[in-house]
């Protein structure tokens, strides 16, 4: 048998034995924690409106995001966020708190390598692709928007 066939047979053999991710509990936890984070966001937003009635809607949104980002970074620094993430999965990655965690965690991790080459350089090692995708896709959408506007 040639090498490729052996490798294919082995991959298939391994695949059959792989332990499966338990979908139902994973989905349930992601839903509950993700939902809870959104509820907390809504709560912050409502509280802001109640305390500062003069704030514009845009400002309320911005302050809510800033508070959520701060809370997630704070919990990352305390070493709590990764424990939430371990069972919540996408539930705590997808909201903006996950993005905050993905920037704060390498910053904490690599601060020993120095302020510039450690903290600043590595800070975006996880979140970098997200930012690039965001910029590229908004550029494409903008371009389409512009072309459609010309017609």
């Amino acid at each position: 048998m040639d090498k490729n066939k052996i490798n294919m047979a082995y991959s298939k053999f391994v695949e059959n034995r792989l332990p499966k991710t338990k979908f139902f509990p994973s989905l349930l936890w992601a839903f509950l924690v993700g939902g809870l984070i959104c509820c907390i966001g809504q709560g912050i937003s409502d509280a802001l409106v109640a305390i500062f009635p003069s704030l514009s809607k845009d400002n309320v949104q911005a302050y809510t995001l800033i508070i959520l980002i701060f809370l997630a970074s704070f919990l990352t620094g305390l070493g709590v966020y990764d424990r939430i993430g371990a069972f919540a999965g996408a539930g705590s990655i997808v909201p903006i708190t996950g993005f905050s965690n993905s920037i704060a965690s390498p910053a904490v991790e690599f601060k020993n390598e120095g302020l510039i080459f450690g903290l600043c350089v590595k800070m975006f090692s996880v979140a970098g692709p997200v930012i690039v995708t965001g910029i590229v896709s908004s550029m494409l959408v903008g371009l389409i928007y512009y072309i459609v506007g010309l017609l």
Binding site: S26, T76, G79, D82, G85, A86, N101, A104, E109
Partner: peptide
Amino acid sequence: RFPLELGCQRPPT
């Protein structure tokens, strides 16, 4: 792998 504090899940393997 990833920074320690990153809230990601490990696969069962």
